[in-house]
Amino acid sequence: MEKKKLNIAVTGLNNIDSPGPGVPVIRALKKSGMDVKIIGLAYENLEPGIYMPGLVDKSYLMPFPSTGSEAFLERLAYIHKKENLDIVIPNFDSELFLFIKFNERLKQMGISTFLPTLEQFEERHKDNLPEYARKYNITVPESKPLVNIKELENLPKPLSYPYFIKGKFYEAFKVSNLAQSQYYFNKLSAKWGLPVVVQQAIQGTEVNVIALGDGEGNTVSAVPMRKQYITDKGKAWGGITISDERLLKITHDIIKKTKWRGALELEMIKTDDGEYYLIEINPRIPAWVYLAVGAGQNLPELLCKLALGEKVDPIKEYKTGKMFIRYSWDLIGDISDFEKIIVFGEL
């Protein structure tokens, strides 16, 4: 029997210095055993994924999530009408709320997703991390969400310098004095809104895990990685898969206790004493997903199977010592492609 071609829409095509996960997700899907047509969904007309040769079969511009749900759903319906989408994989934190909220509406349209529930999505927010840690018995650094810049002058103990000041969705800066923290508070609140979160800096090695939960407490896929090269934006520009049983156990426990549904990334600090501090949970596929594929676990493929209601057996094996190193590459495009995106919103 011939395999059905799947029409899969993917967002996050901004393959820049703070890269979105879209391009590696698409590479993973193309490397899978599935027959796929890739529809790229972009928010900006210069997202590199639109123009990369052989990456997407078709691209559409989307309205920013902040435009409102009606415009968002209307545009998705238009794209669905033209492309008959089977699955959509959203990759931005800022759009996830809409995709989760309208999950049922998308399902009625015939578009499958495999995303966390709204409760799972909301309770792991940065500003809720201390409560989350208490509920699920996880160690986290001291932190406090702030809605007013004046609170920086009187942070509760034991919060002390240096600490990280973090935006609601993205970006974090390590600060060592009040002037720095006030500067970044203003910058982050203007860009991502409130609250801004202050989190105690923990000395240690940054280790991350990419994982996929089936929504019933099982970990379908999990690969841990140590960042080898971190950019000034805190992004991994190089990393290596590691064999860390304790880290995997923490991951399995979180997924089991929360019955996590969908992909996630755990960002942790391992101290010299062997303690693990959870600093963030990203409720989506991270941009380094292709390392997991290279190590033997094609997480986007597994996610698609779960989205289609297929039974997926957990994968436990992966190769350690697999590395990724990012690079930048100048694409040469033509103004006519740019024109199509600008004028018609699709390419």
Partner: peptide
């Protein structure tokens, strides 16, 4: 025994990635 060691003297420690 968990270390990966090459003939050239390159040692990879899989538990930490060092």
């Amino acid at each position: 025994n968990s270390l990966a060691i090459s003939e050239n003297g390159f040692i990879f420690k899989p538990s930490t990635g060092e």
